[in-house]
Simulated assay, not measured.
Amino acid sequence: MKKSVTILTLAAASSVLAACGSTGLLNRERPDEFAVQRQAPLVVPPDFNVVPPSSGAPRPSENAAEQALDVLFGGPAPRSSVETSALDRAGAADPGIRSSVGDVATNTVDKGRVTRDIVAAPQGDGQFAQAVIPQ
């Protein structure tokens, strides 16, 4: 019984596959979709009076980034009094700060696990926040 079902299944599958071939029942004349191309018509520019750039003038593409920033953010805005006072209190940064931070001779203080846990704590309103000091 199993052999006859297997043979019938193989015969049906082979006949279905044969029908999909070039000599099968589903053979139709179709255009080759890869041979079809669309070519856009030639367009003549409406004006040939192109003005040469003036000497010393910046190229239009050099100002593209500045123009984009001005369009997006509205150009430079004046700083508020709070921002100005915070910057005045902070003072000027040391120009070599990035070099000295990674230096081996830079003294660092280990704040411990509690500070690391506070900094890494999830954001929330802190209503139920508590610090657990390990003993």
Rank of each mutant, 00 (worst) to 15 (best):
Cys20Trp: 07
Val16Thr: 09
Pro78Arg: 06
Val44Pro: 00
Gln39Ile: 15
Pro78Gly: 04
Ala68Asp: 09
Ile97Asn: 04
Leu17Ile: 05
Asp70Gln: 11
Ala65Tyr: 08
Pro58Gly: 01
Ala35Trp: 01
Arg98Ser: 12
Ala19Gly: 05
Asn49Val: 04
Leu87Cys: 02
Ala86Glu: 07
Arg38Glu: 13
Pro45Asp: 03
Leu72Gly: 02
Ser80Asp: 02
Leu69Phe: 07
Ile97Leu: 10
Leu26Gly: 05
Leu42Glu: 10
Gly56Ile: 01
Pro41Ser: 13
Pro53Leu: 11
Gly24Glu: 06
Asn27Leu: 09
Pro46Lys: 10
Val50Pro: 00
Leu72Cys: 00
Leu25Cys: 07
Ser54Met: 13
Ala64Gly: 04
Pro53Val: 10
Asn63Gln: 15
Ser100Glu: 09
Ser100Cys: 07
Ala77Arg: 14
Gly74Met: 03
Pro95Ile: 00
Pro60Ile: 07
Ser15Tyr: 07
Pro60Gln: 10
Leu87Trp: 05
Val44Thr: 07
Gln37Arg: 15
Val50Cys: 03
Asp32Asn: 07
Leu69His: 02
Ala19Tyr: 00
Ala40Thr: 03
Ser14Arg: 06
Gly56Met: 02
Ser100Tyr: 11
Gly21Glu: 04
Ala65Phe: 13
Ser80Gln: 01
Asp47Pro: 01
Leu72Met: 04
Ala35Thr: 01
Leu87Val: 04
Ser61Leu: 14
Thr23Ser: 12
Gly96Tyr: 05
Pro60Ser: 08
Glu29Leu: 13
Ala64His: 05
Glu66Tyr: 10
Glu83Ala: 12
Arg28Lys: 13
Asp88Thr: 14
Phe48Gly: 11
Thr23Val: 14
Arg79Gly: 09
Leu72Asn: 04
Gly74Ser: 02
Val43Thr: 06
Ile97Phe: 05
Pro78Tyr: 00
Pro78Asp: 06
Ala77Ser: 14
Val50Asp: 08
Ser80Tyr: 01
Ser85Asp: 09
Arg30Trp: 08
Asn63Ser: 15
Glu66Lys: 14
Arg30Lys: 05
Pro31Asn: 03
Arg30Gly: 03
Val16Phe: 12
Asp32Ala: 05
Ala40Phe: 02
Leu25Met: 14
Glu62Pro: 04
Leu26Val: 08
Glu33His: 13
Leu26Arg: 03
Arg30Ile: 08
Ala68Arg: 10
Leu69Pro: 01
Glu62His: 14
Ala57Ile: 02
Pro46Asn: 08
Val82His: 09
Ala92Val: 12
